[in-house]
Amino acid sequence: MDSIKSLLGNNEQPKEDQSVWEEINNQCSLSWTQRLIGFGISAGLGLFFSFLAFLFLASPTSFAFLYTVGNICMLLATGFIVGPVKQFKNMMQPTRAICAIVFVLSMILTLVAVFSGWSFILIIFLIIFQVCALLYYIFSYIPYGRECLRGICGSVVSV
């Protein structure tokens, strides 16, 4: 069949199958201006929800929900800048994969706790765990950042 198509002038080469990551990357291609606008909107929403969360500090359930939504928006904001595929690959690098997985799981567990009506004490624990996971994840991007954070936490705990 290919020889008949080539005789008729159809010299198209069959396209190679793209990987899932290449397809996602092609679908998510934005101009630099669009990336900055998306980043600005997502980061602005993330900051707004995080600020709003601190207004509801007396209500652990509301605080946990708003703080988690703020973290998700900030994570999406960085995805606009570097692209979703590159961000996922950065998160899954061997040096920070555990940090990223723990951070994402802490956000998921916090949302499950909020919507399932778990006890306030457990929600407060999950908020603290999420803050610690976020710090550890952020410090994973700084050279020797996690070692410095461990040293700081170790000196605070030993006091």
Rank of each mutant, 00 (worst) to 15 (best):
I121M: 12
L76N: 08
S29Q: 07
S42P: 12
G44D: 15
Q93W: 06
F80Y: 11
Q87L: 00
V20S: 02
F129Q: 03
F39P: 15
I128W: 02
T110L: 12
S6Y: 12
Y67C: 01
S116A: 15
I37N: 03
S140P: 03
F129K: 04
S62G: 15
E23T: 13
I138T: 08
G38W: 07
T78F: 02
Q18G: 05
I108A: 04
S29T: 03
T78M: 00
G40M: 04
F54E: 10
K15D: 13
E12A: 05
W118G: 06
K86G: 09
Q27E: 10
V156W: 08
V85D: 02
F56R: 08
F63R: 00
L30Y: 08
P143M: 08
L36T: 07
I124Y: 03
N10H: 15
I138K: 00
M74K: 07
G40C: 07
C153I: 09
M107L: 13
P60L: 02
R96D: 05
F48N: 00
F120P: 09
W118F: 13
T33Q: 10
Y136R: 02
W32S: 12
I101N: 06
L8G: 03
L149A: 07
F125E: 01
F80A: 06
P60A: 04
V159I: 13
A43W: 05
T110A: 11
N26I: 06
A133Y: 04
L149S: 06
F120W: 13
G44I: 15
K5A: 11
V104D: 05
R150M: 14
R150S: 11
I108V: 10
A58W: 15
A58T: 13
S140I: 12
E147N: 07
E12T: 03
F63V: 06
I128N: 00
W118E: 09
S62K: 13
I81Y: 04
L135F: 14
S155T: 11
S158R: 13
F129A: 04
I124T: 11
C99R: 01
A97M: 10
S42R: 00
C28T: 10
V114K: 01
R146Q: 06
